[in-house]
């Protein structure tokens, strides 16, 4: 009891350390990004994630113009983008063309809009690549709040999400509405983009979604195993990336993504060589 009481009273002091805040922030983002990232990989929505993230720059401009929290502005812009893409899909343009046009247009408009805001001096780089070491206590609350919402949504809707990913009609026959499940993923994606902007920045959010999930794939036999493995990989990459950035004095967000990419590379090489070895032993057994 005493230790718990001490821990609680000391918690605010612990959070005074910017490295502790940065670590907790990156873990929160990694945990939320893992299950969502799996769906983005399974549904081949990688470009969709990218487009939503690019719209976040527009959200930053919006927040600064209307002087509201960055989180709110980015959430609105990301949601608007995701809904627009969903509504426009299947109307004569190939999906990748549509996403390519909308992603980069929103990025460009966002950058132009920010340049008009001469009154405020903003560090655009911090939004493009993140500024995890500047995460404050309020930011931390927003990040963990958003992560909790996303993880809860994913857990509660997991069967329906999974079934409509496999086949929309199969989902319908089992009483799930695939359009609603799609909307849930869209909302979750917008939340992850909004909370991750401070940690890895607009340009690298898609990497945090996709790289851990893709790394987990060869080592997973079920969808659940893949999501959990992706979460573990994401957390390890975040914590070690943070540490490495501190040691080598490199930008934090890109360093985290580099470490995750390294895991992907090593994981795939290990998996392939194991695959080749077992195939070889099978052959030698047969002969």
């Amino acid at each position: 009891m005493v230790t718990i009481a001490i821990a609680i009273t000391e918690l605010p002091t612990v959070l005074d350390d910017f490295l502790v805040r940065a670590t907790l922030a990156s873990i929160g983002v990694a945990l939320a990004a893992a299950p969502l990232g799996c769906f983005i990989v399974w549904r081949r929505m990688a470009y969709f994630g990218d487009a939503t993230a690019h719209a976040a720059v527009l959200g930053v401009a919006l927040s600064l113009t209307l002087s509201m929290p960055i989180f709110t502005g980015v959430l609105i812009a990301a949601l608007a983008m995701a809904v627009a893409v969903t509504a426009l899909s299947g109307r004569g343009f190939a999906m990748d063309t549509l996403l390519g046009v909308m992603a980069h247009t929103s990025l460009a408009i966002g950058l132009v809009a920010v340049s008009f805001l001469s009154g405020v001096r903003i560090d655009l780089m911090s939004y493009l690549f993140g500024d995890i070491l500047a995460v404050g206590k309020t930011d931390l609350m927003v990040i963990w709040g958003g992560a909790t919402v996303v993880i809860t949504l994913m857990t509660v809707r997991w069967p329906g999400l999974l079934l409509s990913t496999l086949n929309p009609d199969l989902a319908l026959a089992n009483g799930f509405n695939p359009k609603r499940e799609q909307m849930i993923l869209t909302i979750a994606l917008a939340i992850v983009v909004a909370v991750a902007i401070k940690v890895v920045g607009v340009l690298l959010i898609a990497a945090m979604l996709i790289v851990p999930a893709a790394t987990a794939r060869p080592f997973s036999r079920t969808p659940e195993a893949m999501a959990i493995t992706a979460a573990v990989i994401g957390c390890i990459a975040s914590v070690s990336g943070l540490k490495a950035a501190f040691v080598f004095d490199t930008p934090t967000g890109p360093t985290i993504v580099c470490i995750a990419a390294l895991f992907f590379l090593v994981g795939n090489m290990v998996w392939r060589s194991v695959g080749v070895l077992s195939a070889g032993s099978r052959e030698s057994n047969e002969t």
Binding site: R43, L166, N167, L170, R217, R221, T222, A225, M226
Partner: peptide, 9 residues
Amino acid sequence: LHVDETLPM
């Protein structure tokens, strides 16, 4: 139905 090879199941 087409099951994406990225989805372990």
